[in-house]
Amino acid sequence: MAPSHVFDAHPLVQKLESIFALADDEKAAILSMPMQVATLRADQDVVRVGDSPSRSCIILEGMTATYVSTSKGRRQIVSFGIMGDTPDLQSLLLEEMDNSLSTLTPCTLGFVQHAVLRDVCTRFPRIAAALWRSTLVDAAIFRAWMTSIGQREGYSRMAHLFCELVARKRAVGLVEEDRCAFPITQTELADALGMTAVHVNRVLQALRSDGHIVLDQGWLTVPDWDRLVAVADFDATYLHVKENRPAA
């Protein structure tokens, strides 16, 4: 069997390991799943409402947006996907898509047939448990967004999203020295936060001038994490990231 660090390089293994300890044979099983790798440009739909896909994707690189559109054509982004996430895994058990998924940035996606996922989950019940845990964390993230949109003012609502994205990216090794890629546009932030693009623009400028964030050409730096956490009223418990996981 290959050494453990080989398995850890697989984005899905890395993601699941951040919330659930996997044994080497389980990691090997994930690694051996046949995967069709596709490169997509930014702003491309991966699946749409009403589709009945026979496969789900793993984000190998890039960011995605899960969204729902109203009949008036207004879009609510309900979550962002990052490396290692499985943003349309629900289609494994829910036949018809009730949301759409698009790329936010150029993405590399690994598509795995549902039959393959079912087989792996049957042979390795702990992988099924890990995926279950991952979808439960996704649900916790939805609850946090709902709370923010319903109860937090624009300033802390946006700060909360920044905290969440940094914490999630940190869990899969995408944060270096308090700095990570932040490719989300103001329009996308507006659609995610339930604010107008003008309000987003105003709050972003305020967060910057108050020294909570530095945004430079798609890179986000958080100069003082504890201060941003306080402003955001952020408690990372809902992300259920395991402490003391092995270094990537």
Binding site: E153, M195, T196, H199, R202
Partner: peptide
């Protein structure tokens, strides 16, 4: 339109 809506949402806060 978005400017006016922004003003209204800022008023809420």
């Amino acid at each position: 339109a978005i400017g006016a809506k922004t003003l209204a949402s800022l008023a809420l806060e």
